[in-house]
Design a protein around this nucleic acid. Structure first.
Lengths: 251, 251
DNA sequence: GCCAATTTCAACAAAAAACAACAAATATGT
DNA sequence: ACATATTTGTTGTTTTTTGTTGAAATTGGC
């Protein structure tokens, strides 16, 4: 490990993009050395290299939530598009937290005059930008990796709402246990949302039907017949019983 | 991967449609280069190409707030960097709404263990992503173009806080009237924040010292001696009296 | 349908940057 | 102190990028 490594990384992360020439001037070494020192950093994925310059790979250090948005991105985009098909202009919708919900929020930017209630600051800020939308952020205290709220004020807002659709997600699905998440507070929010919504939309990509590395253990509230299940591929046959009565839509 | 890729994508996504000529002027390269750089983006599906221009492929349609983030971008980035210098790891800070605040939020992603109170959903979601931060979203009902809250619950949260710094902004500055904004509710929030903060940071880029097309008419609360004024260029001499006693920092 | 104005494309030349190999300088171990 | 490694700078060559030119294609109006 080179002695310039830290300073180089710091400079690039701070400024976003720095030319090799400027770096060599800044650190007082030759441009060749900059290239040599930066090579392992590029291979390790800490930086990306473009012609003539080095770019920070994390837009100021990579927040885990945004990182998670990149796993199974294609599937999530497809699902989000499908969900946006279901929801029409002027509808009211409650949206829970999670990376799939974030994609749905982006897809919903093409809808107009939505009424939205969500406990995710990311979803709220995405949809509040759209002129004509009416967005309520449920909750005050934000969880530190994904900007979701689960405090008492979140429940107060959700309990006062009445919406056409609620969008839910899950970390994993098991044939006998149903839709599972990691935290009890997520179940509580989902339950509260479900109680005041006409219809639920459960969005899970195909990877959720397989075992996960970190096994979630808490069950989302059970869906009613007629609720909608959106995925990118049909669920395996083992899940037939679970999906019984649900309206399955594929992206 | 070209070094222009990010900036090109960002510009097109913000504005929806941008002509090749304007892009070449904007990035300071030839139109041929724009075509060359955009080709892989078009093939990858990130952009659509029409004669003479590139279109964003995201169903986005540009929200005015994001569009506003592009006027005077360079100045705002410089100011944001300067503000991030002032605020240290572990500090507590209240942040108001506005496009300058959005840039500050992005710059503050390099700080750790911040305690943040804000009435802007965009700022909240940006900073809540950072592990270790403690972010409170003040308010529930979000304004529809910029995702800012001004309802009663926003004030309740702000009145309970006690922070090291409050970051304020303004739409225009006049030598005799001081820092002006368009809406009374923005003044109210600023006043409440200022009351519970040790020190204020007012961030205004140089364009705010000149007359604006839409003239704001409401005065932000007056700053104390020792409060900080951050800008990208020194204010014109006519503002000397106004800046008297303020700690001026230039980005 | 045809013409004029743009826009796009292809090929080339100049410039900038990356790379490889070697030599000098510094550091390290015995 | 000596020999050996490691790091750094320099040189020359190769690769990539960029702007320019002129030809082909597309658009819009008549």
């Amino acid at each position: 490990m080179s002695k310039y490594e830290d300073q180089l990384l710091q400079t690039v992360d701070m400024r976003g993009t720095v030319s090799v020439q400027e770096l060599s001037r800044l650190l007082g070494v030759s441009d060749q050395t900059i290239r040599r020192v930066s090579r392992p950093l590029v291979e390790r994925g800490d930086l990306r290299k473009v012609h003539g310059a080095l770019m920070s790979n994390r837009p100021a250090s990579d927040p885990p939530f945004l990182a998670r948005m990149n796993v199974n991105r294609a599937a999530k985009v497809a699902i989000a598009r499908q969900v946006a098909e279901i929801i029409g202009d002027g509808d009211s919708v409650a949206i829970d937290t999670g990376s799939t919900s974030a994609f749905v929020a982006q897809a919903l930017r093409s809808r107009r005059n939505l009424s939205v209630v969500t406990n995710s600051a990311f979803v709220a800020s995405t949809l509040a930008m759209i002129p004509g939308n009416n967005v309520s952020m449920a909750g005050t205290q934000l969880r530190d990796h994904d900007g979701a709220a689960f405090d008492r004020s979140a429940f107060e807002v959700i309990e006062r709402m009445q919406v056409d659709y609620v969008l839910l997600s899950a970390s994993m699905v098991e044939p006998d246990k149903g839709f599972l998440v990691h935290e009890q507070c997520e179940v509580d929010i989902a339950t509260a949302m479900l109680a005041n919504a006409s219809r639920a939309i459960m969005a899970v990509d195909h990877s959720k039907f397989q075992p996960q590395s970190r096994k979630p253990a808490l069950r989302q509230p059970t869906l009613k017949p007629g609720d909608i299940l959106v995925s990118d591929k049909p669920p395996p046959a083992a899940f037939d019983a679970l999906c019984e009565g649900l309206d399955l839509r594929l992206g």
